[in-house]
């Protein structure tokens, strides 16, 4: 008996994989049904539906980037403290000292790549008309995932706490003060006042809510850190679950009727 056979016949192996290797038709079906990760897929699909020239694999790559960013992100959290005192120095340390300093590159370039792959995924879904019934709702979920992806990238942009970071966030968040009614330089805000006292001012408007202050500060750093590492990823995780579930429920990978 070879070592491979010994392992495959052991109680441990059989407790994990409850069927022989997927080499025949029956076990190739069973493997999809008995594995929690693989069961996101159906058992069989139309051949034209999974051709790379049709799907471009961009949705799958977007999900892969999300996983890659989650893993490198968690590892980066070991090295990084979101305070004015430490943030920049921790990045310097990652660059110059840490053995796995390349994590930062993997995370940053992975984030850029995810923005591109999710746009291309949307592009493909549009070009094949796959947003049409019965997939209208799932297209909407996908648009929300797109927005959240951009917000993830945007909140992460601040964390290195260098000039590039704070001025990009300053430029980006300056828009919020022009929000109609809710920004202190937005149209309509001047009308929201009680007895001459304005309700919306630079210490109470949408921008203040976003930044936790009147300008990009240590409070902003904490806020963006929590949004970046906890709040938005959780929301994305939930929406990904809905998105994948609905792909299956709405008829699987799209194709001509």
């Amino acid at each position: 008996m070879s070592v491979g056979d010994y392992i495959r016949n052991s109680q441990v192996w059989k407790s994990i994989f409850r069927h022989p290797a997927p080499r025949d038709r029956r076990n190739r079906v069973v493997v999809m049904l008995t594995n929690v990760f693989l069961h996101l897929h159906p058992v069989s699909v139309r051949k034209s539906g999974i051709a790379l020239s049709y799907t471009w694999c961009m949705g799958g790559l977007t999900f892969f980037m999300f996983l890659e960013l989650t893993i490198t992100g968690v590892l980066l959290m070991f090295y990084y403290r979101p305070t004015l005192e430490h943030a920049y120095n921790d990045i310097l340390m990652l660059r110059d000292v840490a053995t796995l300093g390349i994590l930062r590159e993997l995370h940053r370039w992975g984030a850029h790549a995810m923005v591109i792959t999710i746009w291309l995924h949307m592009y493909r879904v549009f070009l094949t008309g796959s947003y049409k019934p019965p997939r209208e709702f799932n297209w909407g979920v996908g648009v929300l995932l797109l927005v959240l992806t951009l917000l993830l990238s945007f909140t992460g942009y601040l964390l290195p706490w260098d000039q590039l970071a704070i001025w990009a966030i300053t430029v980006g968040s300056n828009m919020a003060r022009a929000t109609p009614f809710l920004g202190h330089e937005g149209p309509g805000a001047t009308f929201l006042q009680v007895g001459g006292v304005p309700l919306i001012h630079s210490g109470s408007d949408a921008r203040f809510l976003l930044l936790g202050g009147r300008f990009v500060s240590g409070d902003t750093l904490l806020r963006f850190y929590v949004l970046h590492c906890v709040a938005i990823p959780l929301a994305v995780g939930v929406l990904i679950a809905v998105h994948f579930w609905r792909v299956r429920k709405d008829g699987g990978i799209s194709g001509p009727m």
């Binding site: 999809m32 159906p42 069989s44 699909v45 051949k47 034209s48 694999c57 799958g60």
Partner: peptide, 24 residues
């Protein structure tokens, strides 16, 4: 018929799709 209609038969996800995903 359109190109997507040509290969209309069903194939098993293992190995056809999971390996494509792995390679990607």
């Amino acid at each position: 018929p359109v190109l997507e209609k040509l290969e209309d038969e069903k194939v098993l996800v293992w190995p056809d799709l999971v390996y494509t995903e792995l390679i990607c």
